[in-house]
Nucleic acid binder design. Sequence first.
DNA 1: CCAATGCCTTGATTTCGGTCAAAGCCTCTT
DNA 2: AAGAGGCTTTGACCGAAATCAAGGCATTGG
Lengths: 242, 242
Amino acid sequence: MTVRQDVHSAGIPVLCQSCEARHRGVCGALDPDQLVALSKTSSRYTIEPGAELIGDAETVNSYSNVLSGVVKLTKGLSDGRQQIVGLQFAPDFLGRPFKVESEINAEAATAVSLCSFPKASIERMMRESPELEHRLLKQTLKELDEAREWMVTLGRKTASEKVASFLLMIARNIDPATDPATNSTSFDLPLTRADIADFLGLTIETVSRQLTRLRAEGVIRIENNRHVTVESLSRLERRSGA
Amino acid sequence: MTVRQDVHSAGIPVLCQSCEARHRGVCGALDPDQLVALSKTSSRYTIEPGAELIGDAETVNSYSNVLSGVVKLTKGLSDGRQQIVGLQFAPDFLGRPFKVESEINAEAATAVSLCSFPKASIERMMRESPELEHRLLKQTLKELDEAREWMVTLGRKTASEKVASFLLMIARNIDPATDPATNSTSFDLPLTRADIADFLGLTIETVSRQLTRLRAEGVIRIENNRHVTVESLSRLERRSGA
DNA sequence: CCAATGCCTTGATTTCGGTCAAAGCCTCTT
DNA sequence: AAGAGGCTTTGACCGAAATCAAGGCATTGG
């Protein structure tokens, strides 16, 4: 069980054996000894789009790092209405410490690869390593900020502002090299129209109409229903309602 | 600088000198020595309804415990539209560790009393006491759960479901002794109609009409525009959309 | 006591987004 | 290549909530 070393600008420069990737999410907080121990209990999964991650017996007692792909967190009402309450991109951490569970479902929006560990391993290490808990606090604060940002979008923006805000958010998360000077980006939508609607509190039809409008106005182009090219980021920003 | 002791079912049984009250939020995580040190730097404030707590120079570099009253956290759009993204009730903690600030304003919704400490004191203690950071993580997770719960309300509920959900949430936070058997509660609304509208992503008029409807249907009574009596909690719950 | 002010309610009308319905487009399979 | 099924788009219409506009009802102060 060797642990590969890697130079990292911030934090302890180590790689998780199972992930074979750098994790800002969790592993970066561990020292090499802990990492070796964790590697013994961790394993790597690949999940098909649409598969449930929580509610599923296999993974309910585990935490994971998202290595690639997008996971959607949803909450539903009894009559079937659904709302996406969060999207997890790599290298986000997935799973809820201390079982403060609030009936959230997690589902792979795209193909997803995960590095996951038994709940018990992480919880033990959290007790040993304050740095790990510190990372979790930071991630949780980040998620809280994102959630509040979306509350503004859900409560106060118009349909077209919502769609523009959504495209911007995806652009920022998918393509880390979005250059404001270029003023244009290109990426694959990780969500179907139905998912986008559930994320924005709209219907599929409204989402579709707003995308059509943005296309007609030359702000974006869409190929094969998935691949989006933003022709003018600044125009998209102007439409996102600040 | 004596520190009063108090028997508490969970956690370390201590009282903050300045607060003279038990804090699940922060103080409960400290040992008596730390508490004495903190007491030396903490002070108690009373804030008038409508006063800004963040953005205000006096308190921008401090953390606080809410001792009584309700604080609203708001985010605004450039054109003036506003959304309340959280309500802090006693004994919630107020303030943002690690300056992950996301342009949130905090304002007293009612008269509020606070026990506040300089940012530096808390941050130093956080480094010394993992238990304190643990508490912060728990509070942050709680706030995240609440935020996500409201995302469902904002995105997927109708106006009348929103208002019913809001009344239930207030009832649960204001009156901790809400007994499901009794099926009725009574409390003062800590928010004006405008605040409720900003919380629910509605207009004042819609909020007013929905309250009128609930009154007409005998689910609630309202006196002096503030004092609400829920005649039937179960009927209110049924209207909240699960 | 009577403005005046600030909330809150109510009514009339408009509009944005939802609903219903049909057709178009990919992708995958055979 | 054709057909099937699943997304997506588009159109016509509808309805819930916003907007516009009075008016009511407390509290405050002259």
